[in-house]
Simulated scan of single mutants.
Amino acid sequence: MEYTNLEKVNLKLSKLAIGTMSMPDDFNEAQNMIDFAFEKGINLLDTADLYEKGKIEALMGKALKGRRDDFLIASKVGNVWNSDGVSWHWDPSPKQIRKGLEMSLKRLKTDRIDIYQLHGGTLEDPWDDIFSTFEDLKSEGKIRAYGVSSIRPNVVRIVSKNSNASTIMSQYSPLDRRPEESIFQMATEAGIKILARGVYAKGFLINKIPKPYLTYTEAEVESTQKLINSFEYSGEAMLIGFSLAQLAIGSLVIGASSLAQLKSTCKGFQESKKIPAGLISDLQSKLPVNFYDSHR
Rank of each mutant, 00 (worst) to 15 (best):
S132P: 08
T20W: 00
L137N: 10
R157G: 11
L59K: 04
T4D: 07
K193M: 10
F242H: 02
V148T: 14
F291V: 10
K267A: 08
S22D: 06
Y172D: 04
F131N: 05
G78L: 06
M238P: 02
P153W: 12
F184T: 06
E52I: 02
G147D: 09
I249F: 02
K95Y: 12
A74N: 03
S83G: 10
I113G: 08
I194E: 10
G203P: 02
D111I: 11
E222N: 07
V77K: 13
K208L: 02
V199D: 00
G141I: 04
P210F: 02
D46G: 01
A248Y: 03
N154P: 07
F269S: 01
K8W: 08
H89Q: 13
I168Y: 10
A201K: 00
E180I: 09
T188Q: 14
I194G: 03
S139C: 08
D46K: 09
G61A: 03
Y172P: 01
Q185K: 15
I113C: 09
E218F: 00
Q246T: 05
Y292I: 03
D176A: 12
L137V: 12
E29V: 00
K15G: 07
A237D: 01
E7V: 13
F184H: 09
M186K: 08
Y172V: 04
G78R: 03
S104H: 11
S285A: 15
P92L: 05
S264T: 04
S160I: 07
N79R: 15
L64Y: 08
L64A: 12
Y213V: 05
S170V: 15
I249C: 00
A196G: 09
E189M: 12
E29L: 02
I158A: 06
E102A: 14
S251F: 05
A145E: 12
K274P: 09
E181P: 11
E124Q: 15
S170N: 14
N28Y: 02
E102P: 08
D46Y: 08
S281M: 10
F71I: 03
